[in-house]
Computed example of a mutant assay.
Amino acid sequence: MTDLIGQARSVEDFGAVMGKAMAGERPHHKPYECPPEGSPADVFITSWAKSGTTMMQQMFHQIRTAHRGGDMDFDDISRVVPWDDTAYMLDFDMTVPQRAQPRGFKSHREYERLPEGQRYVITLREPKETYVSMYRFFNGWQLERDAVSMEDFWPLWLGGGPGGCDYATHITSWYARRREPDTLLLDYTWVVKNKEETVRRLAAFMGVDLSPESEALVVERASREFMVEHQDRFDDAMMCAVLEKRCGISADSDSTKVQASGSASKILPASVAEKIDALWAERIAPVTGHHDYSTLAQSLN
């Protein structure tokens, strides 16, 4: 190709990059299909962007393969727990048989845009932390490093990632379903601090019995340390290949989703923090009855 555009240097450029990534034929793509009648319901891991989705994909996959010692034989976690929102872009067949049951899929969508009658796992995260984490993730990968300021990143944060939705739509949608038996709704920070209990809850939700040895294996493999050590499995390898081929963004760019340290909201510019507070007050507080994320998380925990 002679019209590769490389990393974006502005929010407008980012739109052009995504347009190039979506262009062209997709001969292998097949959309998601619900499981046949009588089969176990699928599990959608559908946290908002930068709210623990990759960690929960890994935990889910290790739980369902724990009986055979787990499974790390993959190049991209989204190859074994496919990302429904990007399947067309990646030319991915969503009907391909999975390595274990139940079937699992990733998404960043709200309940209303997901297939009905399945099961849903969501970790919610404090919005200012998601902003910092998302900026760190895109800065140096799809965005030329430091070309877009944290303040100017606002429209990209609002987008919620490929196929996703804005933060307020996502959190209000899933908070309304917090007591539904088909939904496991957790706070990201609680999960990080309580991995053992999270593994037990998720395994029970999936209908998988874990031995103490299998539980320990899953906890270890879902740890930050293990995932950093194996970060080449969690760096969006399939997305990187598409962006290199169609846009000219090097697959060697920093695309890892596993950051060695957490994203502290204290580095967020005051102007951005004020916008997020206003968004919460206008759209989330009236629906949930919680004036900030901390009190909402406490109601879950």
Rank of each mutant, 00 (worst) to 15 (best):
residue 45 I to G: 03
residue 201 R to Q: 14
residue 276 I to F: 00
residue 118 Q to K: 12
residue 214 S to N: 15
residue 179 R to G: 11
residue 227 M to L: 05
residue 153 F to Q: 05
residue 266 K to S: 14
residue 194 N to K: 03
residue 272 V to T: 01
residue 8 A to T: 01
residue 53 T to L: 01
residue 205 F to A: 06
residue 60 F to N: 08
residue 49 A to R: 14
residue 38 G to S: 09
residue 167 Y to E: 06
residue 130 T to D: 04
residue 182 D to A: 14
residue 207 G to S: 10
residue 176 A to H: 07
residue 208 V to G: 10
residue 186 L to N: 00
residue 286 P to F: 07
residue 193 K to D: 15
residue 84 D to S: 13
residue 58 Q to G: 07
residue 134 M to G: 05
residue 157 W to E: 02
residue 66 A to L: 10
residue 299 S to I: 13
residue 195 K to V: 10
residue 132 V to A: 02
residue 36 P to S: 12
residue 37 E to A: 15
residue 186 L to E: 06
residue 136 R to H: 11
residue 193 K to M: 12
residue 105 F to V: 08
residue 34 C to I: 13
residue 254 D to V: 08
residue 49 A to G: 06
residue 164 G to W: 09
residue 201 R to S: 11
residue 134 M to I: 06
residue 148 V to N: 03
residue 272 V to G: 02
residue 214 S to F: 01
residue 274 E to V: 04
residue 154 W to C: 01
residue 37 E to D: 11
residue 138 F to C: 07
residue 24 G to D: 01
residue 219 V to S: 09
residue 116 E to H: 13
residue 119 R to T: 06
residue 63 I to G: 04
residue 60 F to P: 03
residue 65 T to M: 08
residue 6 G to H: 07
residue 196 E to V: 13
residue 10 S to R: 11
residue 37 E to Q: 14
residue 100 A to M: 00
residue 227 M to P: 04
residue 48 W to C: 01
residue 277 D to L: 04
residue 271 S to P: 05
residue 33 E to T: 12
residue 269 P to A: 07
residue 223 S to Y: 03
residue 79 R to S: 15
residue 262 G to D: 02
residue 147 A to C: 09
residue 265 S to R: 15
residue 39 S to E: 14
residue 16 A to T: 12
residue 98 Q to I: 03
residue 95 T to L: 04
residue 196 E to S: 13
residue 257 K to W: 12
residue 295 T to I: 10
